[in-house]
Each structure stands twice: as structure tokens, then as C-alpha cells.
Design a protein around this nucleic acid. Sequence first.
DNA 1: CGTCGGGTTGAATGCCCTCAATACCCGTGG
DNA 2: CCACGGGTATTGAGGGCATTCAACCCGACG
Lengths: 215, 215
Amino acid sequence: MCIPMSLNNRTNTLLERKKSFTKDTVLVDEGSAFKKFFIIHSGAVKTYVTVNGIEQINGFYLPGDIVGFDSIATQKYNNSIKTLTNTITCELKYDELMELVASDAKVRDMIFKLMSQDILNYQKLILSYSQKKAEEKLAAFIYALYTRYSERGHVSLNIKLSMSRSDIANYLGLTIETVSRILTRMQELDVLSVRGKYISIKNLLALYKLAAENN
Amino acid sequence: MCIPMSLNNRTNTLLERKKSFTKDTVLVDEGSAFKKFFIIHSGAVKTYVTVNGIEQINGFYLPGDIVGFDSIATQKYNNSIKTLTNTITCELKYDELMELVASDAKVRDMIFKLMSQDILNYQKLILSYSQKKAEEKLAAFIYALYTRYSERGHVSLNIKLSMSRSDIANYLGLTIETVSRILTRMQELDVLSVRGKYISIKNLLALYKLAAENN
DNA sequence: CGTCGGGTTGAATGCCCTCAATACCCGTGG
DNA sequence: CCACGGGTATTGAGGGCATTCAACCCGACG
């Protein structure tokens, strides 16, 4: 199953067969014509824009996430999409989804809800990243990874980062050195234990407090 | 007319009559039940959450803007809404809009497009505020005000800020002193001229460059 | 065993914040 | 008309956090 919520059978027929990609594959180039949404089945992707040759990461998408809602307005992909690891996606054609939206109230409500949730998440992210200090940002980032996996049924204190330090720093608007330093500090505080891409949360409440997630 | 795009006649009947509010009126309290969208007809509002008694501003809405898309998912208002000046709004009931969405493809497409545009704007905002320095943030903020007014037909280099310095600082994640200092610096550079709440853009291109708006 | 890319650690600079004082705006009342 | 007061905005000095620049570490891989 690819879609986050259970739908009727017709949706499944709209979902193109799963496609498999190796690490560092560019699925979409920024600016190209919008045709379909990507639903992450396994693995992870990042979305980014390139400004003056510099990549600016917009978001990371994990299993269950849908990429592409921002493209409806412009009918173009506003970001490039690249796999971070080997990744399996389902693809959902925009035109076909819209037909289904027109005919099936349940699908329509689900899409509205997903888009609304997207907006809400972005709002929180903006608050997060405009108000927080570096340590709070990183704590919030890791805590968010934990909750995102949890919501999808993968409740585990052990997280494998699919993105590099450099990607994290870029996304959070920090430097790679700062990210590294904060990770070691959190380790000294016994909040996390870090081994390369593997993070183990040792004190979830402390992490939550570091993130200053008061809402 | 309240709605940004022209719709059919039935939409107009759904729009409740205009309502007028004085400055600093709370239209909505965070967490209350979601009933309707607010469309800004004239004036301005801010949306904000209150965390530990501290207000965190989420966005400013100007004439033509619609407030409330983030509430569909939760069926609650996720932000409080307060007028910044005397403001006239139209109110659009959620249930009624959804009925119209079901029956009228044009309305549905418009709502999808508006929500998608919202998502896109938030994405840009996140990039903006996670990557930019203080001066770039403020320049981007002012430039965005200019373009937002322009898109709505108010093309003018003279902008009246409806929000206080303190609101701007809060929104951008800066301090009021920093905002003030940067405004005077931009004045010294002959990019702007500032007199209280009135800003006059003297060099739009320079402002754009300061904002590092390379996309 | 050497190299290369990613990651960590260290010292110095700079940007923005904090704290504090002063200036400005504007409505009110003398 | 001017004086006054309160809130808002500006300006100045000092400190802290994140960046920059640089060196070093480490695991993967030929």
C-alpha cells in the first residue's frame, strides 16, 4: 500500500506500479512540467531548489509522505527531487487524481485534509526555524523525525538518518560544523547517542525540551 | 468583491456580508472550533500562537488574502487572528464552501490552486527564513509586501506598514532593535526612506538584491 | 597501505542579542 | 498653543552564539 490512508479500490488502480530508484537519483528537475505526485513507499528523498548553483534543501520526505502539492498552482515542479537512499515510490497522476476528486467525496476530503495538514506543518516549521536557536532547531528536527516515523507505525528510539550532516545543516540553515558540535553536546548530555548515521534517543523528554516544542 | 478571483454568482451569496472591526480586535482565539474562512477586504490581520504567554506571529494577511486553510485538517483554528488596523472582512463558511466545491469544478479548482499556492509560499518563506541573514530577511519582507500589493493591483513604491516594528521583529525572528538598525542602514544606502510606518522604496532593484531573492 | 569524502574538533571573527539610555510621535489636558 | 505623558522607535556599548577557517580523524575502497 502506498497511500497513507485507506481509500477505495479505484484509487489503487490509479497508483502506478511501484518504481525503484537507487541512491542519488534525480526524479524531477526543478521547473519541469508537473505530471504526477510521488508517494514514498520506502527510502527517502529530498526536495531542493538551486540558486546560483547552490542547493537549498526544502524538505525531506519519508515513507507515507506525498511530494508535489505545491505544484498544483504553478503546474510545474517547484523543486528538484532526489533520492537520499535506495527508494521505492508510487506515482499518482495529477489528472487522474483530479477526476477521482470530482467523483468521490471521500477522496476529495482526504486530499483537502492532506493539503491542509501540509500547510499546518509548514506554519509550524516557519515558527520553529525563525524563532529557535541552533540547538533547538536540531533537537526539533530529530524529534520530528521520531514523531513522523511513529505516526507511520515505526515507533522506535533508533533512527537512521537517511541524509548527510551537510543536508541537515543546509536544511536547518546552519553549518555542518555547528550540527556536528551540537550532536556531540547532546551526546554528552545523554540525550542521544550518535554513531554516524545512526541515532539512538536516550531521553525523549529531554530531547523534546531541548526542542522547546511548547505546543 | 471579496474573493480574489472571479467566481460564479452562487459564491457571492455564500459570502456573508462584510463585517467591520476596529484595530486590535481578536477575531478568533487559537484552538476554537473552525467554522469559516476569513477573507480580508480591507485592512490587515495577523495570525499568531501563544506559547508560554509569548506571542509568536505566524503571518500577516492583506486585502485579498484568505485565512484558515490550515484549519481544514484539524477542524480547529490553529492560530489566533487579530486585526492590525481597522479591517473589513468577508466570512466564508466552511460547510457551504465544501458543498460548492462538490458541485462546481471551477470552485474546486480554485480552492486547490489557492491551497497549493499557500504551500508554495510557505516553502519559499522557510527557505527565506532558514537561510537568510537579518538584513536579507527584512529586505525580503519589505519586497514581499511590495509584490503582494502589486499582485492585487496596488502598484506603489510607498508602503504603509500596518504592523509595528515589534510585530515585524517577532515574525522574522529578530529583535526590534535589529529591525530598527537595518531600516536606518537601508536608508543610508538610499534603498528606502522610512518615516514611522510609512516606507518609500527608492531603489527597488537594490532592495531585491539585498533580499538575495535569487529565484 | 594510501587516498578520498564525510565528519569532528579547535581557535578567532563577526553578527545579532541584551541591556540601557535617549529620541520621537501623538493624543490629552492645561 | 504648549506642556506633559506613555507608548513606540532609535541609538549606543558590551557579550554570546554561530560562523569561518583550519587541522585532524575515520571508515570505505581501490
